[in-house]
Simulated assay, not measured.
Amino acid sequence: MVKIKSPATGVALAIILVAPAACGKNGGQAQRPPVNLLIDAPRGAGVWRHTSWWEQDKGNSASRRWLRGVSDFTEIADAFGSVDAAKDHFRNLAPEKISPDVYRGVKNDDIGATMDGADEVEFKCGETNGSACMTWWTWARYGKYTVQFTYRHDPADATALTDTELAMIVSNAGREVAKKARGNS
């Protein structure tokens, strides 16, 4: 068990780590770690604060989070032992399927972002406040890797991203991941 403590709130979150190899993610084959696919920072809309206390590298899975006001942008990257294993995971274990409590009211939502170099991609919205999307994510596959970008807008945050700003951030992130994924193959 790893405890992650937020310096701002003093709240501790306990996370139980499960070795991805035990879950069959890598299929017994070695691959480059997905931490290499994490973007340096969201680019294109405002200043984002990196929250190093919420960064994880669990071997076959890695994640990083940034804050802008109280809204957040998160990237999760997973590595698999084969393209077929990544395809199966992408098609059968989308974020809304494994965390339905987090990703509620799911609908496809293409805001004009592009994911250059991705083999498969889905743009989704969930948990709306009226007509506004409060949780928006991109689910993409790059060969043996899956990558998820999630933007969560807190209603108390007056600095919500517009669709155009979010599309720019996601498109920039997609290009950065595509470049890094080519180097990881």
Rank of each mutant, 00 (worst) to 15 (best):
I4T: 14
D109R: 13
E165H: 04
A12P: 02
V177C: 08
R43E: 15
W66E: 08
K179N: 11
V170I: 13
F73N: 05
S99D: 10
A45G: 08
E127V: 06
S171M: 06
E127Q: 14
E75I: 13
E176V: 04
A160C: 03
A118M: 06
I15Y: 03
T162L: 08
S171R: 06
A132D: 15
F80Y: 15
Q56C: 03
A45R: 05
A158S: 11
G28S: 11
V18N: 13
S52Q: 12
A41F: 09
Q31Y: 09
A45H: 07
T51V: 13
S71M: 07
I169W: 01
A178Y: 05
Y103G: 03
I15H: 07
N184G: 03
S52V: 13
A178R: 05
E176F: 00
A22G: 15
P20L: 01
Q56E: 14
C133T: 05
I111D: 09
P42R: 09
F123C: 09
M1V: 14
E96A: 10
M134F: 00
E176M: 06
I16D: 15
M168R: 15
V102F: 02
V106E: 07
A30S: 11
P33T: 07
S82D: 06
C125T: 08
G81E: 00
L67I: 01
G130Y: 09
Y151P: 04
D78N: 11
D119E: 13
T128R: 11
D78P: 01
A158W: 01
D84Q: 14
H153S: 12
D40Q: 12
A79K: 00
L166H: 04
S99R: 13
D157W: 07
R68N: 13
T135A: 10
W66N: 08
K3Q: 13
G46Y: 08
T9C: 06
D163Y: 00
F123R: 14
P100S: 04
D116T: 15
R152I: 08
T159F: 02
D101G: 15
D101L: 04
G46A: 03
K179M: 08
W54A: 15
N92V: 05
G126C: 04
T135V: 15
A156V: 04
E176W: 01
E75W: 01
A41C: 06
K97E: 03
W139G: 04
W66Q: 08
G28R: 02
D110H: 11
P42N: 11
A160Y: 03
P95W: 00
R68H: 10
R43L: 13
A8W: 07
S99C: 07
L38S: 05
W66V: 06
V106H: 03
R65P: 01
A160I: 05
A167S: 13
A118R: 06
